[in-house]
């Protein structure tokens, strides 16, 4: 059986600030929503702490649909973090 993992994508200034466009992560223990994932990432190191700092507006999509802090996460999900959109 393959290990439970999340595919995480970062866009725009989040990607540049992290120096990373995507990563795969073993689903950490206790992480079962977008909110708990953000809290876990924040504790990882200063770069994550900075992009998810209070006052920073970061949007999220789970499996290509807009999501909020309470959106549940499961192994195999694609989670994307990005700033408010500015197309058009």
């Amino acid at each position: 059986m393959s290990a439970p993992s999340l595919h995480i994508l970062y866009f725009a200034w989040l990607r540049e600030r992290l120096g990373l466009g995507e990563e795969c992560l073993m689903l950490p223990e206790g992480v079962d929503t977008v909110g708990t994932l953000i809290a876990w990432l924040r504790g990882r190191d200063d770069r994550y702490g900075a992009i998810f700092a209070d006052g920073r507006v970061v949007r999220c999509a789970v499996n290509q649909e807009f999501a909020g802090p309470d959106t549940p996460l499961a192994a195999g999900d694609e989670v994307a973090f990005f700033p408010p959109v500015t197309g058009g």
């Binding site: 866009f11 725009a12 200034w13 507006v57 999509a61 807009f66 994307a80 990005f82 700033p83 408010p84 959109v85 500015t86 197309g87 058009g88």
Partner: peptide, 27 residues
């Protein structure tokens, strides 16, 4: 166009002649 500007996942980065560049903030 109003929904596209606030809901479609696009991001603009502006680059200026003096080398300055920044991501456009949502309005």
């Amino acid at each position: 166009i109003d929904w596209l500007k606030t809901r479609a996942p696009f991001w603009k980065k502006e680059c200026f002649a003096d080398g300055d560049a920044h991501w456009v903030e949502a309005r």
